[in-house]
Simulated scan of single mutants.
Amino acid sequence: MALKRMDNIGIVVEDLGVAIDFFRELGLELEGRATIEGEWAGRVTGLSDQHVEIAMMRTPDGHNRLELSRFISPAVVQDHRNAPVNAFGYLRAMFTVDDVDETLERLRSCGAQPVGEVVQYRDAYRLCYIRGPEGLLIGLAQELN
């Protein structure tokens, strides 16, 4: 049995609407929204009595998805949003964009702030990290041809 693909990356947020707006501005498409609850869901996650609002965002090429989740219950237990880039666990999601500078300018209107500088890695990429809504760490990469 072989691995077929990575289905999605999940990020827990406080404000689902703000997160959706941010990732739409980045270029992802809202595939759908749903409420997940019930005994079956708790059996999957190990969280009994879970009630979660989710939004599935899709990359323009249709190959990757980002699942945004807002837990109504149970309450969120830890907050890693402002962890530095050398912290254990979820670090960041990296997105390839046409133009880092233009994308960064657009995302500033959604509250994005650069973590460091836009840098060039060899003749391959221009890269930067930003903090998006709720302090989420996002990487932007521009391929250089």
Rank of each mutant, 00 (worst) to 15 (best):
V13I: 08
V13Q: 03
E14T: 14
E14P: 03
D15T: 08
D15E: 14
D15C: 11
L16C: 10
L16P: 07
G17F: 03
G17Y: 08
A19C: 11
A19G: 03
A19F: 07
A19E: 02
I20K: 08
D21Q: 14
D21E: 15
F22E: 02
F23K: 10
F23C: 12
R24E: 15
G27N: 07
L28S: 00
L28V: 02
E29L: 13
E29D: 14
L30K: 05
L30V: 15
E31A: 13
R33N: 06
R33W: 01
R33I: 12
R33C: 13
A34R: 08
A34T: 13
T35L: 11
T35Q: 11
T35D: 13
I36G: 00
E37Y: 10
E37C: 12
G38N: 10
G38C: 06
E39F: 00
E39K: 12
W40S: 13
A41Q: 08
A41M: 12
A41I: 06
R43N: 09
R43A: 10
R43W: 01
R43P: 00
R43C: 01
V44S: 00
T45C: 02
G46Y: 01
S48D: 06
V52T: 14
V52R: 02
E53P: 00
I54T: 15
A55G: 00
A55F: 01
M56Q: 05
R58L: 06
R58T: 11
T59N: 07
P60M: 08
P60K: 10
P60E: 07
G62Q: 07
N64Y: 09
N64C: 06
R65F: 13
L66I: 12
L66T: 03
E67W: 04
L68W: 02
L68E: 02
L68A: 01
S69M: 15
R70F: 02
R70M: 07
F71I: 04
F71T: 03
I72A: 06
I72G: 01
I72D: 04
S73T: 15
P74C: 05
P74S: 09
Q78G: 07
Q78E: 14
Q78K: 12
D79C: 11
D79F: 11
H80A: 10
R81L: 06
R81K: 14
N82A: 11
N82F: 12
N86L: 12
A87H: 15
A87V: 05
F88T: 13
G89W: 10
G89Q: 09
G89K: 06
Y90M: 13
L91N: 15
R92C: 09
R92N: 08
A93C: 13
